[in-house]
């Protein structure tokens, strides 16, 4: 298996505040990794580094075998090739969904990547069908329910068929039914064969969406092991603030 991402001694700071420090991590093709950590632990920052939206202040991030630098992504061809291979679903759909209709939203990514009109429309139709969003085609995304917004956000990223899918708190602020619907999607055919990295602090959904768990606390990796092993280590989870004193976890297959 080849490495999709390879991080060595990576650090990132927002002015004086150190968000990430000394991160060493390798993610190989087809892996399903959960980034676990409490709020403010650095999960979202790490996803942004992997997506080329922010750049390491120390150390090196390699993506698809080459260093991921600002200079690399300023080249149009490199940027297009990189964005075609990877998609990020933001935590807040209100940030991600900025177009006037669901159709425009899903078409946005392919259009920016230079797809033809016919290709875009075919891909959008396929996504609308797959997510059961056909009836919402001409609706304004900001008028949809939370669950529908999340589906549109996911469809708008998956439409370009990225090899790597980065998910930032995909089930945050969803009602139980919407959350279960989304988890079904994230454990089904839609993500099969892709490398999926999910940042979350919702422990009861981790087992269903990842095989490997990387625990981040205070900007550092506190553990990197199979999900079952990490979830069984209640001492660790308590220490990093993912569960409370006598917390028990409900594990989903």
């Amino acid at each position: 298996m080849s490495a999709v991402f390879s991080l060595s001694s990576v650090g990132f700071s927002y002015r004086e505040w150190v968000a990430l420090d000394g991160i060493d991590l390798t993610v190989t093709t087809g892996e399903r990794v959960a980034l676990l950590g409490p709020n403010g632990s650095g999960k979202s920052t790490l996803l942004r580094l992997l997506c080329g939206l922010a750049f390491a202040t120390t150390g090196e991030v390699r993506a698809f075998g080459a260093p991921l630098t600002e200079a690399r992504l300023t080249q149009v061809a490199e940027n297009t090739a990189f964005r075609r291979r990877l998609g990020l679903v933001f935590q807040s759909p209100d940030v991600q969904l900025f177009n006037a209709t669901v159709l425009d939203e899903i078409a946005f990514g392919p259009l920016q990547l230079g797809w033809s009109r016919a290709q875009v429309l075919a891909a959008v139709d396929a996504m609308l069908d797959r997510f059961g969003l056909g009836a919402l085609r001409h609706r304004a995304p900001h008028r949809l329910s939370g669950g529908e917004k999340k589906k549109v956000a996911l469809a708008s990223v998956l439409v370009t068929e990225p090899e790597v899918l980065l998910l930032d708190e995909p089930t945050a602020a969803l009602d139980p039914r919407s959350r279960d619907d989304l988890l079904d999607l994230l454990s089904g055919d839609l993500v099969r064969g892709r490398t999926v990295i999910t940042a979350t602090h919702e422990m009861d959904s981790v087992a269903g969406i990842a095989a490997r768990a990387v625990v981040i606390a205070g900007g550092r990796i506190a553990a990197d092991a199979p999900v079952a092993k990490v979830l069984a280590d209640t001492l660790l989870l308590r220490r990093v603030g993912l569960i409370r004193g006598a917390g028990r976890l409900r594990l989903e297959a």
């Binding site: 942004r48 997506c51 939206l53 149009v76 940027n79 297009t80 964005r83 075609r84 998609g87 990020l88 933001f90 807040s92 940030v95 991600q96 900025f98 159709l103 425009d104 078409a107 946005f108 990514g109 259009l111 920016q112 990547l113 009109r117 875009v120 429309l121 959008v124 708008s156 990223v157 370009t160």
Partner: peptide, 24 residues
């Protein structure tokens, strides 16, 4: 902050300064 986040969300999907819309 919202403007910054939205811009990043656009960049993440390939936006490079020229918005392209589908004409149906």
């Amino acid at each position: 902050a919202l403007a910054g986040e939205v811009h990043l969300a656009m960049v993440a999907r390939g936006y490079r300064g020229d918005v392209r819309l589908i004409d149906d």
